[in-house]
Design a protein around this nucleic acid. Structure first.
Length: 301
DNA sequence: ACCGCACCCTGAGCGC
DNA sequence: TGCGCTCAGGGTGCGG
């Protein structure tokens, strides 16, 4: 069966951001940023580059947290450097670069031994240099749907204030109460970051499959029992994806190879037309809230 | 409160 | 071969 573009999607949702956090933290935490290089100002920078540099240069990174799909580097003095990876954001340390970081065209022009040697390009919006030894860190984002901002100590930002509970901490009760009196499709509610932070398109579809609930169902019509199954499905699918290194992030990927192992576990996402793994019914694709939505008519009610 | 839609951006895949 | 079109996606913000 042909794999469409969607199946290769590389969008960082909660698991991918968490995997990124775990992998990058050892290279970031405890180090002092000596300089930050950026691309030109654009809507990518919620804090303009010049001010951003002034805020982080000379600062030591105290820890690296995550809330939903946001990475939050807490600096000395408790200012926070906040990063959202958007659709194509890649945060990585020099030397840990994989060929995935380059476009197909760029890859093709490189010899194999050159491919792992990353050099900043036009899409590299942040380049951190640190005091002392250790690799530089880069943030690359081809489509610039990502965001970076600095939140001074004691201040907050609407982006963070609006976020609901981190999706890993979802409970049946939380979901049940959030769905009452809501006529939006249950899938749209799962994607609402002000309710659950971190759920994106893949994991919304996958968790609804595990719960046996059709994505188009009105949220208010989802029963308490089904809410519990959705919460459970979310925990399973998010946890499993983190375990396997995220659906698309892996240490190294062969130039024409498959993505991370989670893609082999997808039950519905980007499998439209393919047989349901449980009952064999072809997976259907519809659009809900302007998002491609995948489900099994037989297994989901 | 909710829906539909436009917008930001670019690469891949397609038809011609 | 190469052009131009379409599509995908997260999040915000608009008008209805």
């Amino acid at each position: 069966m042909r794999r469409g573009m969607a199946s290769r999607c590389n969008v960082p949702e909660l698991p991918e951001v968490e995997v990124t956090r775990r992998r990058i933290a050892p290279y970031l935490v405890g180090r002092r940023i000596s300089s930050l290089h950026t691309t030109a100002d654009s809507y990518f920078f919620l804090t303009p580059p010049k001010r951003l540099r002034g805020c982080v240069e000379g600062q030591r990174v105290q820890h690296l947290d995550r809330l939903g799909k946001y990475l939050i580097a807490v600096l000395e003095g408790d200012g926070r450097l906040v990063i959202h990876l958007g659709m194509t954001g890649q945060l990585f340390a020099a030397g840990a670069a994989s060929v995935r970081l380059l476009s197909a065209t760029a890859r093709a022009s490189l010899a194999p031994d050159e491919q792992a040697d990353f050099q900043p390009d036009d899409h590299t919006h942040l380049h951190f240099v640190f005091d002392g030894d250790g690799p530089d860190i880069y943030l690359r984002d081809v489509r610039k749907f990502g965001k970076v901002l600095f939140v001074p100590a004691g201040q907050n930002h609407p982006r963070l204030e609006k976020l609901g509970v981190d999706a890993l901490a979802v409970t049946p009760e939380l979901l049940f109460s959030a769905t009452r009196k809501r006529i939006v499709p249950i899938k749209s509610l799962l994607l609402d970051q002000s309710i659950l932070a971190g759920v994106g398109n893949i994991y919304a579809d996958e968790s609804l499959f595990l719960a046996g609930v059709r994505p188009a169902r009105r949220a208010s019509r989802v029963t308490r029992r089904e809410c519990a199954r959705i919460a459970d499905g979310l925990c399973r699918v998010l946890g499993r994806s983190i375990e396997t290194g995220g659906s698309s992030i892996s240490d190294y990927v062969a130039p024409d190879g498959q993505d991370g192992s989670y893609q082999d576990e997808r039950r519905v996402y980007a499998r439209s037309g393919e047989p349901c793994r449980v009952c064999g019914t072809p997976i259907r694709k519809i659009v809900i809230g302007q998002r491609g939505t995948h489900f099994c008519r037989t297994c989901q009610r």
